[in-house]
Design a protein around this nucleic acid. Structure first.
Lengths: 175, 175
DNA sequence: CTACACCCTGGAGCATAGTCCAGAGTCAAG
DNA sequence: CTTGACTCTGGACTATGCTCCAGGGTGTAG
């Protein structure tokens, strides 16, 4: 199990970031949030990471993608680094994620059904309404909340969606 | 079309809120965000809403539940109040929501599949690992990102999910 | 010596739809 | 007059996982 990474042992923040496919800011952020053990420092105060940090970051990214939160990971990794085996907790956390995902899936499906019905109704309304005349589309939503008594969750999702829909600037910078 | 609401005409903030099923803070918020036209004021500075405000709030809640954002609604309602007929825009906005919802649905389904596979793999690992020994569950996620190169959206969803999962304090206050 | 690339830190910003707060005024009943 | 229920305002706060910034230091090639 000798480290076979192509880069020489002590990695600086930027190197580690490039190899792991994240931004230097993210590396520093992970260290601050204890997802990465505190790096050694050079005389000048530069971070010097061991090669294992690359794998660690990949684990973190994978876990985040799976739905774990930074603070959950913090606790888990902390225990693991102390020699503990938080496997059961990890498993049950993942099981919770699955339950949550399934419930969201149901919400989204209901939402999709509602949107489709709404669009169909609106198209009917629009067809029998003159151009430039108001069809009162929104008004048909007034009594609609059979969505349950908590439109908030949907609204929240809605916002994250509209963000995902539109802007994707950033990225692209280096050589 | 005479207002048949049971309460006397000029509604104060709290009355309107109770009738419409939202909090007084929310009523003021909607007014500030121009979802509600500016209310008349009594001599003391209290808001005095017309009975129509109830319906307006219901429309807003319905639209929010359908996925419209406050600022979209602001623009739409503003134009409608000026006598315009933003129906086409409303319709196309809703169509966009549908597209977004469907795409999220696909993401969530992929996520669910991944979680299920992960759990199955982990259970296999756990079975052949002694109690209290580390099974390296998280490590199996390191190379997993076939989720695409953007775990962010998932992570974001994850967070909104965990919030939805756990805490639902507040509410309950009145008589 | 001078670019130029890279590193550091602490802190603000993002984006949403509210919620909650303090400090202060209003109003009807008792 | 006091109590209690209500109202007002402007602003801070919530949650997340980064991202970006200013202001300043480091390292090295030319």
């Amino acid at each position: 199990m000798k480290p076979s990474t192509s880069a020489r042992e002590p990695l600086r923040t930027g190197e580690l970031a490039r190899i792991a496919g994240v931004s230097p800011d993210t590396v520093r952020y992970y260290e601050r949030r204890s997802l990465l053990p505190p790096a050694r420092r050079t005389a000048a105060g530069y971070r010097a990471f061991p090669a294992e940090a690359v794998a660690r970051i990949k684990v973190v990214r994978g876990a985040l993608a799976a739905g774990f939160s930074v603070s959950e990971l913090e606790a888990i990794l902390r225990e693991r680094d102390r020699g503990g085996a938080p496997c059961r907790r990890v498993r049950s956390l993942a099981a919770e994620k699955l339950v949550a995902v399934e419930s969201h899936l149901r919400d989204l499906e209901r939402w999709r059904r509602e949107l489709r019905r709404t669009l169909a109704r609106w198209d009917r309304l629009l067809r029998k309404t003159g151009r430039g005349k108001r069809a009162g589309l929104l008004d048909t939503l007034a009594s609609s909340p059979p969505i349950g008594r908590d439109p908030l969750r949907c609204a929240r999702l809605g916002s994250s969606i509209s963000r995902a829909t539109s802007g994707n600037r950033r990225r692209e910078r280096g050589s």
